[in-house]
């Protein structure tokens, strides 16, 4: 723990200007992740600009459909929002699968997207970590890998992104609205988080001084039949071993539309495009679901200690899609509004 300066931002533009002007500065949201890292000496900012009180705490309807979620909307508020629960159950479920009620009451939408990995070596300054200190190597390789990546990792980093909400958002194709030193940027969600490559110190494509102000979730009627399934060793308050976010539309027993994203297996929320492609137009059967999961997982490169994630994820994909198929059939049978 080191001394740092603290200022409370009055407006987003001022916050961006302050942080952009100081290479040692950073934004402070709810602090549910950052304050831990200050104590652990993992983060060493010279200045924290508190953006948690900026007037960005509304969930607004967008003309023509969709929602505009402010950066400081609390996780519990977003999960409980009637529109989210009805139109995007996958997002509400993902939010409620994360952390605890107390943390969700504090944690913000933008902060959740930007939380750092739970890799135990990243969080322990006595062990080397290239994400913390570029070029110092990856202690997780050859170490404790239970919560580490099986997809898209590199020899520099096998960390996973810990967010549940982000996995739920990944199947909704939102746009992340960012205010930077050069003005507003609109970043497709799929492009926000990076794979580690040879620069694992960068979790996202954001530049110093970039502040997420909103997440715009487009209208997507198919998402009313969607779900988030988190697999973990205990029933609550645990990060995902693997997780699956899924949207499924079934017409005449065939997959009309599907989106799949995985959590707990990669440095970013893992959109399973190969599996989606294989599923579209195919019979909505367990056999197809399994084959699609296998297609996506063909690229998996597990570590000793986390090879179980491959069959576990396959099982979770099958379970989620089976449940959504049943739900779709029930909705069609009763003529309910999907």
């Amino acid at each position: 723990m080191r001394p740092f300066a603290y200022v409370r931002a009055d407006d987003a533009a001022g916050a961006v200007a302050t942080v952009a002007a100081d290479p040692e500065a950073g934004f402070l949201g709810a602090g549910t992740n950052l304050v831990d890292h200050l104590k652990l000496d993992v983060e060493r900012p010279g200045l924290l600009v508190d953006v948690s009180r900026l007037p960005l705490d509304a969930v607004e309807d967008v003309e023509g459909g969709g929602l505009r979620v402010g950066a400081t909307v609390r996780n519990s508020a977003l999960a409980a929002d009637r529109r989210v629960r009805h139109d995007y159950p996958v997002l509400s479920q993902a939010l409620l699968a994360g952390a605890t009620g107390q943390l969700r009451n504090m944690a913000t939408t933008a902060g959740n997207l930007l939380q750092r990995t739970r890799c135990v070596y990243f969080r322990d300054v006595t062990t080397p970590c290239a994400k913390r200190e570029p070029g110092s190597g990856c202690s997780a390789i050859g170490g404790y890998t239970r919560y580490h990546a099986v997809l898209g990792a590199s020899s520099h980093c096998i960390a996973t992104h810990p967010s549940d909400m982000a996995v739920g958002m990944a199947v909704l194709d939102p746009v992340v609205v960012v205010l930077g030193p050069g003005g507003e940027k609109r970043i497709p969600f799929a492009e926000l988080h990076r794979l580690p490559g040879d620069s694992p110190e960068r979790d996202t494509v954001l530049e110093h001084g970039d502040l997420i102000t909103h997440v715009e979730v487009p209208a997507y009627p198919a998402a009313r039949n969607s779900a988030y399934r988190k697999v973990r060793d205990r029933a609550s308050y645990a990060f995902a071993l693997v997780s699956v976010a899924a949207v499924l539309e079934v017409t005449d027993g065939r997959v009309a539309d599907v989106r799949l994203a995985f959590g707990g297996v990669a440095h970013r929320p893992w959109r399973a495009l190969a599996a989606e492609e294989l599923l579209r137009g195919q019979p909505a059967t367990e056999e197809t679901f399994r084959a699609a999961a296998d297609a996506e997982l063909a690229a998996a490169e597990p570590q000793p200690g986390n090879a179980f994630k491959v069959p576990m994820l396959r099982g979770a994909v099958v379970a989620v899609l089976r449940d959504l198929t049943t739900a779709a059939a029930r909705a069609a049978g009763t003529g309910e509004d999907r």
């Binding site: 739970r118 135990v120 070596y121 969080r123 322990d124 062990t127 170490g143 404790y144 919560y147 060793d233 205990r234 029933a235 609550s236 308050y237 645990a238 990060f239």
Partner: peptide
């Protein structure tokens, strides 16, 4: 290495 209560799991409520 899993030396905190987020990573060292105990049975929760």
């Amino acid at each position: 290495v899993n030396h905190d209560l987020a990573e060292y799991h105990i049975t929760a409520n």
